[in-house]
C-alpha cells in the first residue's frame, strides 16, 4: 500500500512537471496565436488588444495555473484554425484512435504470446529459419505499405470492406469496428513481430536458467514447465516493452489513419502542426505525455504483483 501511495505521488508530480514543460515550450516558440490569427497586416494595437483579450499579458505562472485549471476541466482553449473548442475536436477523434488502439493491442497480445511460445518450442528445427524470416519481414514492412496491401487484397480484390468509407462509432458501432479491424492489422503486424521476437528471446533466456532444470527434475512436462514456471518470468521484461507499444498506439498512427482515411488524433496533430494551431498541439502533446506516464505507472504497479522481488527492494 505504501508502495502504491509513493508511486501515485510520483505520478502526480511527474504529470505536473510535464504539463509545465509543455506549457513553457509553447511560450518559448516565437509567434503567438494572436499574431497568427490576425495575419501580417494587423497593427500593433490590434495585436496588443487581442493579446490582452486572450490573457497573454499576465505573468507566465498565472497563465500556467489558468491553463492547467482549464485543462483539468477539459477546456484546452479554442483552435485558431477550426474555430472550435480543442476539447471538442479531440473528443470527436478519440473514438477512432481508441478503437484502433484497442483492436491493435488485442491483436498484438493474441498473436504475439502464443507465437512467442510456439516459435521457441520449434527451436533447433528447420521451422526456426521460417519463423525468423516472417518475424523480420513483419518488422521491416512499412505500415503504409502494409495498409495499401491490405486495402488492395481485402478491399479491392476480395471486397470484404469498402476502402475509404466514412463511418462513425455512434451511428453504426458494429460496422465501424468491423471496418477498423483492417487498419488495426496494419498497425499490429510490426508490433506482433517485435513482441514475438522480444518474448522469444526472453523465454529462451529463461529456459537456460537453473530453476527450469529443477522444474524438469521434479518430473514436470514441457507444458508444465512453460506455463507454470517460464512464462511468468519471461513476461516480466516484456511488460515494459508492451507498455511502450500501448502508449505509442494510443497516440494515434498518422500513416495508417491517412491510408484508411480515418479521422484520428494522428492526423489532427499533423494538420495542427502545419497550421501552427498551438492549442491543439499543446493538448495532444499533453495527452501523449500523460499517456506514457500513466502506462509507466501501471507497469510499475503490475511489476509488484508479478515479481515479488520488486517489493523487497
Amino acid at each position: 500500500m505504501k508502495y502504491l501511495m509513493k508511486k501515485t505521488i510520483t505520478l502526480i508530480l511527474t504529470l505536473l512537471t510535464v504539463t509545465f514543460l509543455t506549457f513553457i515550450a509553447f511560450e518559448v516558440i516565437p509567434g503567438d496565436s494572436a499574431t497568427l490569427s490576425l495575419g501580417t497586416d494587423a497593427t500593433p494595437e490590434q495585436i496588443e488588444a487581442l493579446r490582452e483579450q486572450l490573457g497573454y499579458n499576465k505573468p507566465v505562472l498565472v497563465r500556467y495555473k489558468d491553463w492547467l485549471c482549464d485543462a483539468v476541466k477539459g477546456d484546452f482553449g479554442t483552435s485558431m484554425n477550426y474555430n472550435l473548442p480543442v476539447g471538442q475536436l479531440i473528443k470527436e477523434r478519440l473514438p477512432v484512435t481508441i478503437t484502433l488502439a484497442v483492436l491493435s493491442i488485442l491483436l498484438t497480445v493474441v498473436c504475439a504470446v502464443p507465437l512467442g511460445i510456439v516459435t521457441t518450442r520449434k527451436e533447433h528445427s528447420r521451422a526456426e529459419g521460417i519463423h525468423q524470416f516472417f518475424i523480420h519481414l513483419g518488422m521491416a514492412i512499412p505500415p503504409f505499405f502494409l495498409g495499401i496491401l491490405i486495402t488492395f487484397i481485402f478491399g479491392l480484390t476480395l471486397r470484404w470492406f469498402v476502402p475509404g468509407t466514412e463511418l462513425s462509432f455512434s451511428e453504426n458501432p458494429s460496422q465501424f469496428i468491423y471496418y477498423m479491424i483492417y487498419p488495426a492489422i496494419a498497425v499490429a503486424v510490426p508490433k506482433v513481430a517485435m513482441m514475438t521476437k522480444f518474448l522469444r528471446s526472453s523465454i529462451k533466456r529463461q529456459l537456460g536458467l537453473d530453476y527450469v532444470r529443477t522444474a524438469y527434475s521434479k518430473g514436470g512436462t514441457n507444458r508444465h514447465v512453460m506455463y507454470r514456471h517460464v512464462l511468468k518470468n519471461a513476461l516480466i521484461p516484456v511488460i515494459t516493452f508492451f507498455a511502450m507499444i500501448v502508449a505509442e498506439v494510443f497516440a494515434g498512427s498518422i500513416v495508417v489513419e491517412q491510408v484508411f482515411n480515418l479521422p484520428g488524433l494522428g492526423r489532427l496533430l499533423v494538420t495542427a502542426i502545419g497550421n501552427r494551431d498551438y492549442p491543439i498541439v499543446q493538448a495532444i502533446v499533453l495527452y501523449i505525455a500523460a499517456l506514457v506516464i500513466l502506462m509507466n505507472f501501471i507497469v510499475d504497479v503490475l511489476y509488484q504483483y508479478i515479481d515479488p522481488r520488486v517489493k523487497a527492494e
Binding site: L209, D210, Y211, R213, T214, A215, Y216, S217, K218, G219, G220, T221, R228, H229, K232, N233, I236, I306, D307, P308, R309
Partner: peptide, 24 residues
C-alpha cells in the same frame, strides 16, 4: 522417465540461489 523423476530418482543442485523459481 518423467514418472521416475522425483518419485524414484531425485536431484539437488549446486546453486540454491538460482535453482528455485524466483516468482513462486
Amino acid at each position: 522417465k518423467r514418472r521416475k523423476k522425483a518419485n524414484e530418482i531425485a536431484m539437488i543442485f549446486q546453486e540454491p540461489m538460482t535453482s528455485l523459481n524466483p516468482v513462486i
